[in-house]
């Protein structure tokens, strides 16, 4: 039994972090109706930013949470403003702009290869104050970095949710996601809101980078590992849904860790994709997806 508890706890913690990687994706899709193929690369940028910051300064990874996400926000804001927006504008009036998706794919390749050029292909890890530490909860051993990642993921999701619900900008983001033309008539500059959405999504990738780096390695194409998961999670939880992203992440995390007790990890991948297909067949809007949102 204790092995099962252990894997449930591990799965939940890892899953919340998968959810965190999906949060930015679901936010950007929700507002812009753009599937951002560069999302994994933005996560990679976040991980490298955290890596270099921790490597050079040796600071506590929690402190990096105050530095990396704001930097990534600025990066995402201007990436959207300078690279994506011009293409978006040329497709004005299209509900799901297709060429924008191709542009995000281009951004993915450029970022990954830029990282390869600058940092090389090697796998890098950095020892932080919390790396390798753990505490026990009854029979279950809980890794500190993963527990911290779990808590930060939950706080980020709740924070984003409150931001969307309560603030002027949050409401403008939601209004734009539901009807961009009507939102425009309210005086909301939709392109600025897209910048903010993209900036926030990228900042969340920065948060994810900070919490993952204490126990994981970073390399230029690391984004792909999380990216495919994030896509599955977003569909599972419902496109555009914040709680859906976290719940979807936890479901995937638990499947991955518990099934790995009984079978090889290649099989858990197959099971994850199997569930993904079942969801697409029977409830394509996901756990929390809303048809009205389309």
């Amino acid at each position: 039994m204790s092995a099962l508890y252990q894997s449930l706890v591990n799965g939940t913690m890892m899953g919340a972090m998968y959810g965190l990687t999906a949060l930015g994706l679901t936010l950007i899709f929700g507002v812009m109706k753009v599937v951002n193929f560069a999302h994994g690369s933005l996560l990679m940028v976040g991980m490298f930013a955290a890596y270099w910051l921790l490597k050079i300064t040796g600071m506590h990874p929690f402190l990096a949470l105050l530095i990396v996400p704001p930097l990534l926000f600025v990066f995402g804001y201007y990436l959207q403003d300078l690279v994506i927006k011009p293409v978006f504008k040329s497709e004005r009036g299209v509900r799901e702009p297709l060429t924008v998706i191709i542009v995000t794919t281009g951004v993915w390749y450029v970022l990954d290869n830029l990282a390869l050029m600058l940092f090389g292909a090697e796998y890098r890890t950095v020892r932080t104050a919390i790396s390798g530490t753990s505490f026990s909860m009854g029979e279950v051993i809980v890794s500190w970095p993963k527990f911290a990642g779990f808590v930060v993921s939950m706080l980020t999701a709740v924070g984003l949710w409150l931001f969307m619900l309560k603030t002027r900008t949050g409401k403008a983001l939601r209004a734009t996601s539901m009807d961009r033309e009507a939102a425009n008539l309210m005086g909301i500059d939709q392109y600025k809101i897209y910048n903010v959405a993209f900036g926030l999504g990228t900042a969340i990738a920065g948060v994810a980078g900070c919490v993952i780096i204490p126990f994981y390695y970073v390399y230029p194409s690391v984004g792909v590992v999380f990216d495919i998961r994030a896509f599955i999670i977003v569909v599972l939880g419902g496109l555009g849904s914040i709680p859906g992203a976290i719940l979807g992440g936890v479901v995937i995390g638990i499947i991955e860790s518990t099934f790995a007790q009984f079978m090889t990890s290649t099989w858990t991948e197959a099971i994850i994709y199997g569930i993904f297909l079942l969801i697409l067949f029977f409830k394509p809007s996901g756990f929390f997806g809303n048809k009205q949102d389309w």
Binding site: K171, R174, A175, M178, D179, E181, A182, A183, L185, N290, Q292, D293
Partner: peptide
């Protein structure tokens, strides 16, 4: 200020 045709409310708000 323009109140558009078909109301165009933010339906999930």
């Amino acid at each position: 200020v323009h109140v558009p045709e078909g109301r165009r409310l933010f339906s999930l708000m």
